[in-house]
Amino acid sequence: MPRPKLIRKVSNPPNFKGFKPIGGPENTHVVVMNYEEYEAIRLSDYELFGQMRASSQMGISRSTFARIYESARRKVALSFTQGLPIVFEGGKVYFDSEWYQCNDCGSLFNHHDRETLANECSLCCSKNIEQFSDESDDVSERNLKCK
């Protein structure tokens, strides 16, 4: 039995379902791109992170990140050259929501809606909150938690 895959963290899932080529014949085939592949392209080519930083952000090893990124690029190339639509679907991922810290009661809480900012603490309803930065979230820590 192969080793189970680590769960990949996707911190910014797309809020649309995919892409369609303009004009050309209607195509029944689609390219299915996993959320982790989308995230790999986003981190590498949009945020311009190096592979080390991008992989730790997703909670996976650098070589796994390189593999996912490679597969993502091939899918984009296939879609471009064949004029196939891309659909975002599946993958072994979890979505990370925005985390906030309350300065009054000291608790951390998350907020699901990415479009709007949270304006009050979900525990004590205080307005004195700030966004919680997730810098300590490295790979080794996550691996320990999984055990």
Binding site: D96, F109, N110, H112
Partner: peptide, 19 residues
């Protein structure tokens, strides 16, 4: 844990962590 966070996110249940 990492698995639970994803489950609650998809169910739209808010998490509060008290350290």
């Amino acid at each position: 844990g990492a698995k639970v966070k994803g489950v609650f996110d998809s169910l739209n249940i808010k998490l509060i962590v008290i350290k």
